[in-house]
Amino acid sequence: MSIIIISSDAMEIEETIAEKVAEAMGYSRLGHQILADVAAKYQIDPVKLNEAMETTPSLFKNLSARQWRHYLACVEAEVYDYLLADNIVCWGLAAHLYVTGISHVMKVRVLSGNSRGTMEIAEQKGISLQVVEKLRAGELQQRKKWSLAAYNYDETDLSRYDLVINLDQIDPEEAVKTITGAIEYRKFQVMTYSMKCLSNLALSARVNVTLLKSMADINVQARDGSVVVSTKASARQKRKKIATIKELAGNVDGVSYVEVHVKKNILEETA
């Protein structure tokens, strides 16, 4: 009765290990395949959604920061809904960056290993080892940049994970065995409190999606149906913004009370 989130520096490895762990544990799978469902549910262009999961916003890419945040929030909300079902192996949705503070979630990072991974890619693609190394370094740098921009976390920081396994010397089968063994540990078992925390995060994510559709600079925290939204606004717009937030958030399923905290938006006021 737990959730396993697997992240890796190589997408193929992430998927392979996640599939094997899910099979061994009899858990359901939650991978990047759900992005198509997210796009359909929130009426987003699937290509743009995929792009948002890989790149940061830029003027040249026709993806504004607000749009990007909204797309990421849509994915988050959907992931939380699935995670509430429990007994799940999740990968490829950056969940290791935003699912935080839930005791029955085990976060694992699997590293493809420098020598083994590089050689396999070089053989598959028929290119030299140096080229592969350069390409991988670029990809890793891009992922790091993305994780910092999206969630202010460096995904290569090992303190973010319960377990990090490097496949350079350890066989994938051995890694699967270690992961499945670890999840049996009692601290990863579901408790009423951890489930409640997850429900609160899921509700925050749902409110976040609703609000980010029409505004930016939003921070949402939910607890047992009560929602606190922090935002910025100029003195002139303060009342209007509070009313809008209360109306939009109040219509979200599961919200019983909305409180809005507004900070002065100095930039807007000066303008």
């Binding site: 420098n114 290569t156 090992l158 994970y161 319960d162 377990l163 990090v164 350079d168 010397q169 990863f188």
Partner: peptide, 13 residues
């Protein structure tokens, strides 16, 4: 993370 074969966080484990 790539410097180690195994990294374990003593918290839940």
């Amino acid at each position: 993370t790539s410097l180690y074969d195994l990294s374990i966080c003593i918290h839940k484990l």
